[in-house]
């Protein structure tokens, strides 16, 4: 039974992916417009002359790399959950309108000229978070009106709310002041601003780790659910409760990611597919592996964004879409082949 997931196999694969992530992170803190020597930085801040390498590493690069890893893990994990529950391989973390809700929130904050901060979160981030969570709640509520076990209603509600809010965003964009426009546009394209406080990273990281752990516990239920609600129910899965918990958890993780980094596309779509192809669809393994791979992917994308047009910085969303688009097309062709020839 070579496909069977055993504790040993899971531990081994997680160690491998975790090691890969650490290596990628270590490599990427050295990459940037200013070259940094790891060895020199390792000597620490205790020397008398200011150690510039250490300063850049610890205060600039490391927080950014950590942030990229957290956001990548959250988005990839949320993508897995939405694909499983909606039984739709094209679902991504933004499918329930999170992107437009967050976008609208951040835009309002910029237009209102709010400048306050809340526990390290800027007004724009806070408004984006609130907008994202409120939109998910709205979509969930509309979805429930159309039927409790039908995911199509939920999917359509997400698409329609997304389209409506996008129209509102476009309307606001056309009347907004030019100076405000750049801030919002950059945010919408997705980028890692330098996080002002490390404690923000701790909070986001903890939410992410706890979320992944909790979703892993729901892993066997998600396996059953990806066969459809009827099947899952007959196998003893309390479907409404499971959907609510998994959706809630994934939406929270996405909202955290979105409020910290703006809209970064393709991570939540392609990473789960890539991991599924490599390691199988079992969610107990798919969730943590996708998180680790998603984190590594975004750390690399962020490093690329720093060097491609250095010393300027590209929005990381541009890199993920440029790399993700072709990759996704390959997957799509493979998937279509499966439909035609995979099963008789």
């Amino acid at each position: 039974m070579k496909h069977l997931l055993t504790p040993g196999k899971l531990a081994w694969r997680l160690t491998l992916a975790g090691g890969l992530l650490l290596a990628v992170m270590a490599a990427c803190v050295c990459i940037g417009s200013e070259p940094v020597s790891l060895r020199k930085a390792m000597q620490g801040a205790a020397v008398e002359t200011p150690n510039i390498d250490y300063e850049i590493l610890m205060c600039v690069r490391l927080p950014k790399v950590l942030l990229a890893a957290i956001v990548g893990a959250a988005l990839a994990c949320a993508g897995v959950v939405f694909q499983a529950i909606l039984r739709n391989p094209l679902a991504d973390p933004y499918i329930l309108g999170i992107s437009s809700g967050a976008g609208l929130g951040s835009m309002l904050a910029v237009m209102m000229g709010w400048m306050w901060t809340l526990a390290g979160l800027s007004a724009m981030m806070t408004a984006a978070f609130i907008g994202a969570m409120a939109t998910v709640w709205l979509v969930w509520w509309i979805g429930r009106l159309t039927g409790r076990t039908q995911t199509t209603g939920l999917l359509l509600a997400g698409v329609v709310v997304n389209a409506f809010f996008s129209a509102v965003i476009m309307f606001l964009t056309s009347i907004i002041k030019a100076s405000h426009l750049q801030t919002t546009l950059f945010w919408l394209m997705g980028s890692f601003a330098e996080p002002e406080k490390m404690n923000l990273l701790w909070v986001a990281g903890s939410i992410c780790v706890l979320g992944i752990g909790f979703l892993m516990l729901l892993g066997r239920r998600l396996n059953s659910l990806s066969f459809g609600p009827e099947e899952a129910r007959s196998m003893g899965v309390p479907i409404e409760q499971t959907c609510f918990l998994a959706f809630g958890c994934a939406a929270l993780m996405t909202s955290v990611a979105v409020s910290l980094s703006g809209l970064i596309g393709f991570v939540g779509l392609i990473v789960p597919h890539a991991v599924r192809l490599a390691a199988g669809p079992d969610h107990r393994q798919l969730l943590p592996l996708s998180a680790l791979v998603g984190a590594a992917f975004l750390v690399i994308a962020d490093a690329a964004a720093r060097v491609v047009v250095a010393p300027a910085i590209l929005p990381v969303g541009v890199i993920t879409a440029l790399a993700g688009g072709p990759f996704f097309l390959i997957l799509l062709i493979r998937y279509t082949k499966n439909i035609h020839w995979g099963c008789s």
Binding site: L4, P7, P89, R220, R221, N223, S226, G280
Partner: peptide, 23 residues
Amino acid sequence: PVFGYSVFETVLMARSFRREWSL
């Protein structure tokens, strides 16, 4: 189904509700 579970994995899913929170 949408995702490619193996035959053995599929059959094992019928056992999952008996010890719900074990991985």
